[in-house]
Structure formats: structure tokens, C-alpha cells
Amino acid sequence: MAMDARDIESLIKAALPDARIVIRDLAGDGDHYAAEVVSESFRGKNRVQQHQMVYAALKGNMGGVLHALALQTSAPE
């Protein structure tokens, strides 16, 4: 079962309410996405910590329902 881009965005928004999120379905199959997430919550954190925050927001769906997510994260400029 695939995961919808709106569901991914909703989960991330619930954990990072200020986030600006752009999600693209890379293969058209609902399993391979790219996400750009910009949030003030990332300020002062390294890239690994930022990605861990997004993975935590996905509540265990990463690697299961959501097969692949290419992440680009940053704090606002």
C-alpha cells in the first residue's frame, strides 16, 4: 500500500507546524518521493538531526508504507 503525498505533508506539518513543504512523487507510484522541508525548528541543527526530525514526524511509516523519501531540509534564510 502506497502513501499519499498529502498524508506525508500532514504528518510533517503536525510535528513542524511552521514548515514550508514541497513534495514530489518521483516515480508516479506513491512509493518514491522527494520532499523539501524548510522550518525554523531546524536552525542550529545539523543535516542528520534535521532529517531525524522529519523521519520522527512520519511516525514509523518510513521504510514501510513509504518506501523512499529523498529529503532536502533547511532553516529559513
Rank of each mutant, 00 (worst) to 15 (best):
M3F: 01
D4E: 14
D4G: 00
D4I: 02
D4M: 11
R6V: 10
I8M: 04
E9P: 00
S10G: 08
S10C: 03
S10Q: 13
L11W: 12
I12V: 12
K13N: 08
K13F: 03
K13D: 08
K13A: 09
K13S: 15
A15N: 09
L16F: 14
L16W: 01
L16T: 03
L16P: 07
P17W: 04
D18E: 04
D18Y: 09
A19M: 00
R20G: 07
R20P: 00
R20H: 08
I21K: 03
I21L: 05
V22A: 15
V22S: 10
I23K: 09
I23H: 05
I23G: 08
R24P: 00
R24Q: 13
R24K: 15
D25H: 03
D25K: 05
D25N: 07
L26I: 12
L26V: 14
A27I: 00
A27F: 07
D29T: 12
D29I: 09
G30Q: 01
G30E: 00
G30C: 04
D31V: 02
D31M: 11
D31S: 11
D31I: 01
H32M: 03
H32A: 08
H32I: 00
H32P: 03
Y33C: 02
A34T: 03
A34I: 06
A34V: 12
A35D: 01
E36Q: 13
V38F: 05
S39M: 10
S39L: 11
E40F: 01
S41D: 14
S41Y: 07
F42M: 04
F42D: 04
R43Y: 11
G44T: 06
G44Y: 07
K45R: 15
R47M: 06
V48S: 05
Q49D: 14
Q49S: 12
Q49E: 14
Q49K: 14
Q52V: 02
M53N: 05
V54F: 06
V54R: 06
V54I: 11
V54H: 07
Y55A: 09
Y55N: 13
A56S: 15
A57L: 11
A57K: 08
A57I: 07
A57M: 10
L58K: 05
L58I: 08
K59Q: 15
G60I: 04
G60C: 06
G60R: 02
N61A: 13
G63E: 02
G63V: 10
G63S: 10
G63L: 05
G64P: 08
G64L: 05
V65G: 01
V65E: 13
V65Q: 15
L66F: 11
H67V: 09
H67R: 10
A68M: 06
L69C: 08
L69S: 01
L69K: 06
A70I: 08
A70H: 09
L71G: 04
L71P: 01
L71M: 15
T73M: 10
T73D: 06
T73S: 14
S74V: 10
S74L: 08
A75S: 14
A75E: 06
P76F: 14
P76D: 10
E77I: 03
E77N: 07
E77Q: 14
E77R: 11
E77S: 09
E77W: 09
